[in-house]
Design a protein around this nucleic acid. Structure first.
Length: 698
DNA sequence: CTAGGGTTAG
């Protein structure tokens, strides 16, 4: 096994361990470093970026000053370090200072000129033409001011080259830094690297500002290996990163998902006497949020508390987002309360995070309270927040609130409803079964020129299908395809579920014709399943092929629908075959659960027909066990759930009526909604009484 | 965007 990062680091930058021998004047050292190494790596191993330990290996041997190495070599076991000579640090505690600008009395004139240059035609000739009209001597100060005011990056770059050619004064670091910053806006990493290499060849020193600009530009261009490479080069030249460069590189590792490296760097920094600022904590919080790692988020909170760093608004926002990703709506809510208690005012991003969390959790009460509070306190709104609130309303089924928001949006000066806003409305009316309103919005979209997207089309098609308005469904589908919408797996699943509900052959053919355009193999499978010449092996092959090409979250719905189609055609044996295939390919994990006292069937993610099929299958299995006189637990239960959505149709009702039809001795549990229970005492006689042969048919 | 780091949408 490769050495762990922390051991590799300790070789180069030893940290005193928190044992009894450690003198108290050592920098605080936590006894536990939180790092969830049980999680699988976030990134595939094929990445080019070497691990931090790999990078620090060459780095440490070249960058550690010799006297430190000598000291370490001479006293390898000593953990004592003279407090007046602080031990080897990984970052400079002093932030690089910037030279103050001398006031330039010609600011106005120069800025005006810079604007002229910025606005001129984007060609070298045009630019040089305007340059000839320069109103003042291009002295160092004047040139710097102009350089600073130019945009876009092409102009900055041209001007920078021009200054160099003129050769009026020596080029200094600041000229490169200013130019690089502009180039970064254009994500011109190659040019930035070119300039950096030029600095090296011309002996112009690269400082922390240069390095942090290079690193963040590489990061924004997703050139993470380049970011790390330049960080390493900085150490090699003997320059210590200050906290700005340091947190920039922390963010690079965080974006790579290298949690261990980030925590290690962070801890090394703290051990060097660094008091991380809110930006560093925001980087950590974001990283743990992306990993959905709640323990990590707690670690960040504890660190801030123990170091006495008060979160600012950005940190709160990042933490809220992270709590949402970690699936902790309750903690997000308390964090928000804490934010308000600390006297901060939430901004658009805060409220967007919270609205998303309440919507996903379907917390209607909190969602409504949030909206009321937003209105009464006049908290800021923007376009994204409007759309997120609309989506939240759609998730929860808040129809009137959504209508109000949509109206507000139309009246607002700064934003027009876009395809997201309309999609939310289509979702609200669609899932509420208000086909008329949904179609009204669909027509309005084409009037105001907002394009339908695949999700909106799916919502609309779903509600038209449920309402049995198949001709309109076909129309919406063809309009969507004509608009260039590429039907995705969800839309196909939606069409397939409508097929399963069609009552007439005619309607079914119309929907299948749509599906034929979107996913012909799926239609072929439906035909194979319903074919007189049914062959399980053929179906199995087709099924396998389709499922492996289907997005993960649409696989089970596909199988559910296919089972429903079989049942609607009274082909119950084939429904059982499909349930078997679905189980075989792992689409129904956790369907059966056993404890010593209770066996249960969890059909919460199954369709009505699939749940019925699973129940029958279970009963057949249990009957066999009874026949073989094997042991059975005291209790049996089947869980349908109640459906968290206001509009959800409730699997539990149909399941209950199916139980009734079978005369199975399951009772609706009194303490747990959506749960049906039977005792062994009641179930066994019933299983025995059923004739063994057509056990699966009703 | 008057030389550098962190946060918003199925």
């Amino acid at each position: 096994m490769a050495p762990t990062l922390s051991t590799a680091l300790d070789v180069h930058f030893p940290i005193p361990q928190s044992d009894a021998k450690t003198p108290i004047f050592f920098t605080r050292r936590k006894s536990t470093i939180y790092c969830n190494s049980s999680k699988p790596p976030q990134n595939p191993p094929a990445r080019k970026t070497p691990s931090l330990s790999e990078q620090l290996q060459p780095l440490s041997s070249t960058t550690l000053p010799n006297k430190d190495q000598a000291r370490l070599l001479s006293k390898p076991k000593s953990t004592w370090v003279n407090p007046t000579k602080p031990k080897r640090s990984v970052l400079s505690l002093q932030r690089q200072t910037r030279s103050p600008y001398a006031y330039n009395p010609k600011v106005r004139e120069l800025k005006l000129f810079a604007k002229k240059l910025s606005d001129c035609e984007d060609s070298e000739d045009a630019f040089l033409g305007v340059l000839e009209e320069i109103p003042l001597e291009p002295t160092r100060e004047n040139a710097l001011l102009v350089l600073n005011s130019l945009k876009p990056w092409q102009k900055t770059h041209l001007f920078f080259d021009w200054i160099k050619t003129k050769n009026l004064f020596p080029m200094e670091t600041i000229f490169y830094n200013v130019t690089m910053k502009s180039l970064r806006f254009g994500r011109q990493f190659e040019l930035i690297e070119e300039l950096a290499n030029e600095m090296v060849s011309n002996d112009i020193p690269l400082d922390n500002i240069t390095y942090s600009t290079i690193i963040t530009c590489a990061k924004r261009c997703n050139l993470f290996d380049k970011a790390v490479e330049w960080f390493e080069r900085m150490y090699k030249t003997g320059l210590m990163p200050d906290e700005v460069t340091y947190s920039a590189i922390l963010d690079v590792y965080a974006k790579l998902g290298k949690v261990e490296e980030v925590v290690s760097l962070y801890e090394r920094g703290v051990a060097s006497g660094w008091k991380p600022d809110p930006i560093a904590f925001s980087v950590l919080a974001k990283m743990y949020g992306e990993a959905g790692d709640y323990d990590g988020i707690r670690y960040v909170l504890e660190e801030m508390k123990s170091l006495g760093v008060r979160p600012n608004l950005v940190v709160y926002n990042t933490l809220l987002e992270a709590m949402g990703k970690a699936g902790k709506p309750g903690l997000a809510r308390s964090l928000f309360q804490e934010l308000l208690g600390s006297g901060l005012t939430p901004n658009e991003k805060t409220l967007t995070s919270l609205a998303k969390i309440y919507g996903k959790a379907r917390w209607a009460k909190d969602a409504l309270e949030l909206w009321e509070e937003m209105k009464s306190k006049n908290w800021p709104m923007d376009f994204i927040l409007y759309n997120t609130l609309l989506t939240m309303c759609a998730d929860i089924g808040l129809v009137e609130e959504a209508e109000q928001l949509f109206m507000d949006m139309k009246q607002s000066r700064h934003c027009r409803p876009d395809s997201w806003s309309y999609t939310a409305m289509l979702k609200i009316y669609g899932s509420g079964g208000n086909v008329g309103k949904a179609m009204e919005f669909f027509e309005e979209m084409s009037e105001v020129g907002v394009e339908l997207n695949v999700m909106g089309a799916t919502c609309l098609i779903q509600c038209l299908g449920k309402a049995g308005r198949i001709d309109e469904l076909v129309r919406v589908f063809s309009v969507s395809v004509k608009q260039g919408i590429k039907p995705d797996d969800r839309l196909c699943g939606c069409l397939l579920s409508i097929v399963s509900r069609c009552e007439s052959r005619e309607d079914m053919d119309k929907v299948l014709a749509c599906l034929q355009q979107a996913n012909p193999r799926l239609v072929a499978l439906v035909k194979s399943i319903a074919d007189e010449e049914y062959c399980l092996d053929t179906v199995k092959e087709e099924f396998k092929g389709i499922i492996s090409d289907t997005k993960d979250d649409a696989r089970r719905p596909f199988c559910n629908c296919l089972i429903d189609i079989c049942r609607s055609k009274n082909l119950h044996d084939r429904a059982h075959d499909l349930l078997y295939l679905g189980t075989l390919y792992g689409l129904y994990p956790g369907l059966h659960n056993k404890t010593a006292n209770e066996w249960s069937l969890d059909v919460r993610s199954l369709s009505v027909g699939a749940a019925q099929t699973a129940l029958e299958e279970w009963m057949v299995t249990l009957a066999k066990i009874v026949k073989r006189e094997e042991a059975l637990p005291e209790l049996f239960s089947a869980q349908t759930g109640t459906g968290t959505h206001k509009f959800s149709q409730g699997l539990s009702n149909s399941f209950a009526s199916h139980l009734k039809k079978l005369a199975a001795p399951f009772r609706q549990s009194e303490e747990k909604a959506g749960c049906f229970v039977a005792t062994r005492e009641d179930l066994v006689p019933w299983l025995k009484s059923r004739s063994p042969s057509p056990a699966v048919s009703v």
